[in-house]
Nucleic acid binder design. Structure first.
Ligand SMILES: [Mn+2]
Ligand SMILES: [Mn+2]
Ligand SMILES: [Zn+2]
Ligand SMILES: [Zn+2]
Lengths: 146, 146
DNA sequence: CATGTAGTTGCAACCAATTGCAATTATCAT
DNA sequence: ATGATAATTGCAATTGGTTGCAACTACATG
């Protein structure tokens, strides 16, 4: 029926309930594109069901994050952003601290780092969605000229 | 005189002022050990000079962070932590999401990642002090038994 | 040393996110 | 289908952190 049946299963088998509020939040995350703030998700859910509370949104994002179905990332914009984690399209971001440009970084870089850490320490890192700050090529060259 | 003369120089040459409040905050960071919360720094400064405001602490941490003299890190404890960045002792942390154990990770791992990213994209990442969440060896083995 | 000015401070108001709690509800086991 | 139970919700209060602003001060310059 709904296209969230898999997620509903995951919720139930981990002792959580599939409430209507959660399904709406899930829908916003899966059909809205890319990085969403809690306020954006809240707005979308509210349009359909005006009684939701923002705390329900945050708590749901909390459980989805625990289950590693969504990533929570500080992209330096002030508000934390959330993104549905798709195993096929795992990626990260490079963010310039000078011009704020955001680009994507292939997951492979972090996959390799994760494998090394795992091999040498036994610790298995969660590498769902990183924001790496720094200086983009353009800004770095400008800075080096001084 | 004071042991913060280098930092004072950095502040001045970047167009900032070396105010008494800032020097006290600096002192707390350099002489206090390891990860400090804004509240801890505030408390220490307040003991010496009761009129400081917490906003001054946050703003000072902001400029020190911009200058990359301190790192700001979410270690998952609720409050953001700040640590003086010592070039010689650069390090990162692995934090278990199950048992909360915190260990150190040698900087070399991230140095290598940074070099790769830089070589292939021209982006120069700031790799001052990362917190990498995941499952420690013990918790991972326990989880795999189920 | 005096002075002009940009940078900083304390305060109060504000904002994003979290938490305690009593009422409600999804789910499981009969 | 019904009832017991644990999880969840909405609400209100709270916390950690930020911001606008008028008063103040560090410091560069002459
Ligand atoms: Mn992304
Ligand atoms: Mn550290
Ligand atoms: Zn840039
Ligand atoms: Zn552990």
């Amino acid at each position: 029926m709904s296209c969230e049946t898999d997620t509903v299963k995951v919720l139930r088998t981990t002792g959580h309930k599939a409430t209507p509020q959660r399904l709406m939040i899930l829908g916003a995350l899966r059909h809205g594109s890319g990085h969403l703030t809690a306020a954006e998700i809240f707005g979308e859910v509210q349009a359909e069901y005006p009684y939701v509370d923002i705390s329900t949104v945050y708590r749901t994002l909390g459980v989805l994050k625990e289950l590693r179905l969504v990533s929570e990332t500080d992209m330096g914009t002030g508000d934390t952003t959330y993104e549905w984690v798709q195993q096929q399209e795992r990626h990260h971001h490079l963010i310039c601290r000078n011009c704020d440009e955001v680009t994507s970084l292939d997951h492979q870089y972090l996959e390799d780092l994760g494998a090394e850490i795992m091999a040498e320490s036994g610790f298995k890192p969660d590498l769902d969605h990183f924001a790496i700050f720094g200086l983009c090529a353009k800004c770095r060259l400008e800075a080096e000229q001084n």
